[in-house]
Simulated scan of single mutants.
Amino acid sequence: MKSRSPADPRGLIHESFRIDGITMAECRSIFLDWAMSLPEATDQRGALRDLIARHADRCEGHPMLAVLREGLAETEAPRRRGGRAARIDEG
């Protein structure tokens, strides 16, 4: 067993990999708790990369690994629609 990582000081992510039958929804809840408990100055993307590297080799297919990868994925910034297009529903 690997020791705790500075990226997971409370061991939340580590322990989630040890829970048999854990669901994607439970993993997302644990992930949110982990993210909210990190110190403000923490590089969250770096922490995610570290956690993925620590667990990917032995936990492929685990729902928490999928959640970590989702957290690392780039999200497109919302684009503001202005003028007439913002006021009229095109659907």
Rank of each mutant, 00 (worst) to 15 (best):
G71L: 05
T23H: 07
L12A: 02
G82C: 07
S37Q: 07
D8R: 04
R69S: 14
K2G: 14
S29A: 14
W34P: 07
P78V: 15
L51E: 07
E40M: 06
P63F: 00
D8I: 10
D8W: 08
A25G: 12
G83C: 06
P63Q: 03
A86L: 00
A73S: 08
G21K: 07
V67C: 06
T23D: 06
L48M: 09
V67M: 09
A66W: 01
Q44A: 14
A77P: 10
A7P: 13
S3E: 10
G61F: 02
W34L: 13
E90H: 09
S16E: 05
D33P: 01
K2P: 15
A7K: 02
R87Q: 11
R81M: 02
G82S: 10
A7G: 12
G46H: 12
C59P: 09
R18L: 02
H14Y: 06
P39H: 11
D8K: 09
R4V: 08
E26G: 13
R80S: 00
Q44I: 12
G21F: 01
I13H: 00
M36Y: 12
I22V: 03
L32G: 13
R18W: 00
E90Q: 05
F31I: 14
E26R: 09
A7T: 14
G71D: 04
R28T: 09
D8F: 07
A66G: 05
D57R: 01
D20T: 08
R4H: 05
Q44F: 05
C27S: 15
L51P: 01
R49Q: 05
L38S: 10
A66K: 01
L72N: 08
T42A: 09
T42K: 08
R84Q: 13
W34E: 04
G46Q: 07
D33T: 15
R54A: 09
D43N: 15
R4K: 12
R87D: 09
P6D: 13
S3W: 02
G82M: 10
E60K: 10
E15H: 07
A86W: 01
R58K: 03
E76T: 04
I88A: 00
P78S: 15
T75R: 12
H14Q: 15
C27Q: 06
L65Q: 01
A77W: 03
R80Q: 08
D33K: 15
G61M: 11
D57N: 06
D33C: 05
C27D: 10
R87W: 10
S37K: 13
G82W: 06
L38C: 08
H55W: 05
S3I: 04
L32M: 11
D20Y: 04
A77C: 04
R87S: 00
E76S: 04
E76Y: 03
A47W: 00
E15A: 11
K2L: 14
L38M: 08
F17H: 00
C27H: 07
D89E: 07
M1W: 04
L65T: 06
D89G: 04
